[in-house]
């Protein structure tokens, strides 16, 4: 199975690090000025696929008896709508589509983990001529952090919009412990930690889960190096892990969506 990596030394480290290498194109001089083409292409393709599918279905949506595809999309939208309504009490016209986008997009990106790593690596190399190609955009910290940061920005935007800039600064210093001047510094530190930890935990939770899932697939793939028995054993274990991974993929997408709703909802509530 690892035969296609002939140019690498056939060591476990070489196998895994090959699979975990991004297709990075520099666009500037500093290390920051480069783009992970694989993450970007996969995520945008999946986003267009998911959102575009819904758009196509919605364009022909009828208020009468819905078709199977429409019923499916309605199921997804209804699910998100219920979640948003149970957490967020206010105008959901932006928050609900936000949650839907997050859920569908993250779910699709996570699902890329189901594609068998070595077969896909062979296809990327021999069909598309790509030596390095990470197919799971959510196991790229850039993707998850971008999403978490976007939610964080929205959270700040709504905090300022709902409470005003004065209210935001007041809350920064006077909650959660109280408005005593002695407590201003502790309050501010507390809020600072909260504001920093929110996007970090939001993004790292998803990233860590998907990254770990990928690593486990790679480690199970390593069994193939030990021979036929190892290949069969590895295949069985991979199947088991893939089945279990269905849960993780859906669960992480769900958690990411719920946290998005919760953060935006918290921005609307005054302490």
């Amino acid at each position: 199975m690892a035969a296609e990596h002939a140019e690498h030394a056939l060591t476990p480290t070489g196998y895994i690090s090959h699979h975990l290498s991004f297709l990075t194109k520099p666009v500037g001089d500093t290390p920051f000025m480069s783009v992970n083409v694989d993450s970007l292409v996969m995520s945008v393709l999946l986003g267009i696929l998911g959102i575009g599918f819904m758009w196509l279905v919605v364009r022909g949506a009828t208020a009468g008896v819905p078709g199977k595809r429409q019923a499916f999309v309605e199921l997804a939208i209804d699910f998100v709508n219920d979640q948003v309504k149970s957490i967020f009490h206010g105008d959901i016209r932006f928050v609900a589509p936000l949650a839907l986008t997050v859920f569908i997009w993250v779910l699709l990106m996570n699902s890329m983990d189901f594609l068998p790593v070595d077969i896909m690596a062979w296809i990327y190399k021999n069909v598309f001529g790509l030596e390095y190609w990470r197919q799971v955009p959510t196991s790229d910290i850039n993707t998850t952090f971008a999403l978490a940061l976007a939610v964080w920005v929205l959270m700040l935007y709504y905090t300022v919009k709902v409470k005003g800039l004065g209210g935001f600064i007041h809350e920064l210093f006077c909650s959660p412990f109280g408005g005593n001047p002695l407590l201003w510094i502790p309050n501010f530190l507390f809020n600072l930690v909260e504001y920093i930890s929110k996007p970090l935990s939001h993004s790292l939770r998803l990233y860590g889960n998907m990254y770990a899932g990928e690593i486990i697939f790679l480690l199970l793939g390593l069994w193939a190096a030990t021979g036929v028995a190892g290949t069969i054993f590895g295949a069985i274990l991979s199947t088991g892990w893939a089945i279990f991974h269905i849960l993780i993929v859906a669960l992480q997408a769900y958690i990411f969506m719920m946290l998005t709703i919760v953060y935006v909802a918290m921005a609307h509530e005054s302490h």
Partner: peptide, 14 residues
């Protein structure tokens, strides 16, 4: 796990 311009691109796409 390098942070690079991908972050900005994903942010905008989102």
């Amino acid at each position: 796990m390098n942070i690079n311009l991908t972050l900005v691109a994903q942010f905008l796409w989102f």
